[in-house]
């Protein structure tokens, strides 16, 4: 069994790398985009706020699986201009769009929790809107949203397995291939263990971040 494990481990690990790549780039892009979208949504410029509300509504109201299939299999069949993505790009595109919407909704709650006195305090000191957002508001919002962001981050680890459907070689696919080829359950157990490790690490990192932000109340 140990021998078999060491035989399939390389393919599982290369699947893990794909899973981590999707995880990492989705976070790197979606977190800042989520902040921008939630700011845009509360913009006084109504068309912008309507468009972003609509976008969030669609992203949160339809399955991520559908969005993935739509981007990879659907967009190339568009009537006039065919948008064709590589598998990996399609996966990232769909994940970033989807997670940006969820993060935007979380950040909206965070921004709403900031007292208007903070904006006024900054304004009478002469800080501009963007200086206020960057130096005063966002740092406080981050502290507020960490627990909810944490839940989404752990969901993302697991959601990344959905790329299976567009044939991307992630961790789940690596395990499933080995399992059906060798007619054994072990690869799937190993896949489960790797996911557990990944979510454990995420939980731990989040604890550290949360602790870092406990320096003030």
């Amino acid at each position: 069994m140990l021998q078999y494990t060491s035989e399939i481990l390389p393919s599982l690990l290369s699947g893990t790398v794909m899973t981590l790549k999707i995880f990492f780039w989705t976070l790197v892009a979606s977190l800042p985009l989520g902040i921008l979208v939630s700011l845009g949504r509360s913009s006084k410029f109504k068309p912008l706020s309507w468009i972003l509300s609509f976008y969030i509504w669609v992203m949160r109201g339809t399955p991520l699986l559908l969005q993935l299939i739509f981007v990879f299999y659907g967009l190339p069949n568009m009537p006039f201009f065919h948008i064709v993505f590589e598998r990996y790009d399609a996966a990232l595109f769909a994940f970033i769009l989807n997670y940006t919407a969820y993060f935007a909704e979380i950040f909206r709650g965070g921004f709403g929790a900031i007292d208007k006195g903070q904006y006024e305090g900054a304004k009478v000191l002469g800080l501009s809107y963007w200086q206020t957002i960057r130096k005063i508001v966002v740092p406080q919002v981050v502290k507020i949203v960490i627990p909810s962001i944490g839940n989404e981050v752990i969901n993302l680890v697991k959601d990344s397995s959905l790329v299976y459907v567009i044939g991307l070689g992630d961790l789940l696919r690596a395990g499933n291939i080995a399992s059906s080829r060798d007619v054994t359950l072990l690869p799937l157990v190993l896949v489960g263990i790797i996911y557990l490790l990944l979510t454990l690490i995420c939980t731990w990192v989040l604890k550290v971040v949360e602790k870092h932000y406990s320096y003030y109340r």
């Binding site: 903070q118 006024e120 305090g121 009478v124 002469g126 005063i136 740092p139």
Partner: peptide, 15 residues
């Protein structure tokens, strides 16, 4: 700066 303000509840930046 022409005007400075000390607010009733101070509005210090907690972070």
């Amino acid at each position: 700066q022409i005007i400075g303000v000390v607010f009733q509840d101070f509005n210090l930046f907690p972070h």
